[in-house]
Design a protein around this nucleic acid. Structure first.
Lengths: 171, 171
DNA sequence: AGCTTATGTCAGCCTTGTTGACTTTCCAAG
DNA sequence: CTTGGAAAGTCAACAAGGCTGACATAAGCT
């Protein structure tokens, strides 16, 4: 729908070579292939355990924001409560996550990683960070800035909100 | 495992502020949130049809390299032949993909999009490109260069090979 | 007291990944 | 010319992790 055409070479006097359909296709494939690498290392660790990527995501965000509520996690992860609950239940059963009844509002459950949970989180994020660190180092600081700028623009506004929320003061 | 510590401020005389664990965490979350945005638009189109993301990927790479073999597609997508075959079968049945027996090697099947397939590919990639284009435009050419540099470094070497294979001459 | 919110749970469905076993086709080496 | 093995396809069974719908409970709010 709404074919924009294959020519974007010149627009309003500026050279916009980086906006050709071919360049956009490259960007699309870069996202596809890079995301595979991005998840490959934690996936390898998780397949030995009884967990999957969904558990990793839950653990990551509970670690990032200890005491977060189920509802908040739901908004960040963008899945249904049934999906999240299935994951959360196994994590609580296995003693990786603790679910405490809220003090102010007793309907809410606040989620925390146990020692064991923190330990797995560290193992997973170390694996992921190692690859990210190598990529950042080879690419250099300017490339990293560009990387994050583009990704931020690619997010849905709602997701960008969640992204920025945990980023305050660490610009 | 192998905790690298939280300090990377100074290493071999250079300031490497962009390599702190906090910066890496930001990079990790940027990938997570951005990938969601990246797939959101095509996903919305696909859910009305009887197709999913797996169909989109197959269609994309058949369109990129018409006449590619099943084996080649297998290597690019990184799934089992049974998984791919299920997807390919429905696409052939629905008349979006044509599977031609190889002329040189008759065991191979060469895959092509039909008119209908090209049409769906265009609809999906237009949706995806529109978001990518907006992101690239707001971020600017230097950011786009950095974006691609980092993503390239993040790929598995095998995947990088596939990425670069379709990129020759369009640097 | 009654509505709303937060959470949990059961049941069932879909897509997409997996493994294992087996067949057909056909190139190529002995 | 036979035979080994590669390429492709198929069937069956299974699992993870999405989804919807329905319903239960507790607690906050009006």
């Amino acid at each position: 729908m709404a074919e924009q055409g294959t020519q974007n070479q010149v627009s309003s006097g500026e050279s916009l070579l980086f906006l050709t359909d071919e360049q956009l296709r490259r960007g699309i494939e870069a996202m596809f292939f890079a995301y595979r690498g991005f998840t490959a290392d934690p996936d390898r660790i998780l397949e030995n355990l009884a967990y999957g990527r969904a558990h990793h995501r839950a653990i990551h965000f509970i670690n990032r924001t200890p005491g977060t509520t189920v509802n908040n996690l739901l908004a960040i992860l963008g899945v249904t409560k049934q999906s999240l609950n299935r994951v959360l239940r196994t994590l609580v059963e296995d003693g990786l996550v603790e679910s405490r009844v809220g003090t102010r509002d007793k309907r809410e459950r606040h989620l925390y990683l146990t020692e064991q949970g923190v330990s797995l989180e560290r193992e997973l994020s170390d694996a992921q960070r190692t690859r990210m660190r190598a990529a950042f180092r080879k690419a250099g600081p300017d490339a990293v800035t560009g990387f994050r700028t583009v990704l931020e623009q690619m997010m849905d506004p709602e997701m960008k909100r969640h992204y920025l929320a945990a980023t305050e003061g660490s610009k």
